[in-house]
Design a protein around this nucleic acid. Structure first.
Length: 294
DNA sequence: AAGCCGCCCAACCGCCTCAGA
DNA sequence: TTCTGAGGCGGTTGGGCGGCT
């Protein structure tokens, strides 16, 4: 038996929201807040919409702190850095970009940033990375201020205009991120956690080309052709075989100083032991996307 | 001017998680 | 402990729009 629908679909309007509906929803939320129940909200507000649809409309469009307009280089940097570490956990990535929604970021990634990344990778001569010297240490550590990130990550955004404040519900905790999917958390310092990269489970490792960094050192390691780009499915991601080259991004800084010093360089096969790769992506990936380590 | 094509993004769908009964 | 339902998420879709022929 399937799940019961969240609303009576026969009596629910679908499709684009009208200005009147927007105004009604906004007015209701400003006066009453969500009341902790999105399902009941449309009926109370006099809207013939699914509660989920109302929630989505509010979070992705009507919310007053939504940032419109193009993404900055800094935002690009944060997105590609976090995507490289977390994969398509858009809500977590969005939590690091104030005013941006997960939907925005997801769309931006799928339509622009991914192509930008691939194009940047294509522009970078393969030899430039092949000749790159290995790092002094093959087991660099990542310095991550977990407490800061955890505290700064908003949970599912919900506004309570009844108290003229914004609060967040606790739904998507940082515990779902690779940061704390680490195998061993025994040595965690709540103020400044230092994790060994080998402890991470990274579902979608990727390259981080020059443009996405604001720091002085950056690398681009995966080369591809425009045909390769066209051949990738929208949901495809770059992935590295065991013959990886590096995962490094020295940058990605936001106003809080988060994500700084994301040194994460892999030059030892042992480091990959704890990684999870998506084999189906590897099968689809054009061979030219795979770069042997020097 | 009209038709075609590709891109963008708002919105939907279905699955998962988790709290409360 | 199990069940139920709301909240939340990521993937996907399709309509609108602009550029090109």
């Amino acid at each position: 038996m399937g799940r019961a629908p969240c609303c009576d679909k026969a009596n629910v309007k679908k499709g684009p929201w009208s200005p009147e509906e927007d105004a009604t929803l906004k007015r209701y939320l400003e006066q009453h807040g969500t009341g902790g129940n999105w399902i009941a909200l449309p009926h109370k507000a006099g809207l013939k919409r699914c509660g989920k649809s109302c929630r989505l409309r509010w979070l992705n469009y009507l919310r007053p702190d939504i940032k419109r307009g193009g993404f900055t280089e800094e935002e690009d940097s944060i997105i590609c850095t976090l995507y490289g570490r977390l994969g398509s956990r858009w809500s977590v990535i969005a939590s690091q970009l104030p005013g941006r929604t997960d939907n925005d970021i997801k769309n931006y990634w799928n339509t622009k940033l991914k192509k930008k990344l691939l194009a940047a990778g294509n522009a970078c001569p393969k030899s430039a990375t092949a000749n790159r010297s290995p790092p002094e240490t093959s087991n660099s550590i990542s310095h991550l201020n977990l407490a800061q990130i955890s505290a700064s990550i908003p949970k599912a955004e919900t506004y309570d205009y009844g108290s003229s404040s914004c609060f967040y519900t606790n739904s998507n905790t940082l515990m779902r991120t690779p940061l704390v999917e680490a195998k061993n958390m025994e040595n965690c310092d709540p103020d400044c956690i230092i994790l060994d990269p080998s402890q991470f489970l990274v579902s979608r490792p990727m390259q981080v080309p020059d443009f996405c960094t604001s720091g002085s050192e950056s690398y681009s390691t995966i080369t591809t052709s425009s045909q390769d780009v066209a051949g990738l499915s929208p949901s495809s991601t770059l992935a590295l075989e065991n013959n990886y080259s590096l995962l490094s991004c020295n940058g990605g800084v936001n106003d809080d100083g988060l994500l700084m010093d994301f040194q994460f360089e892999c030059h030892d096969d042992d480091l990959l032991d704890g990684f999870v790769f998506q084999e189906d992506i590897l099968e689809k990936l054009p061979h030219s996307c795979l770069v042997n380590s020097p």
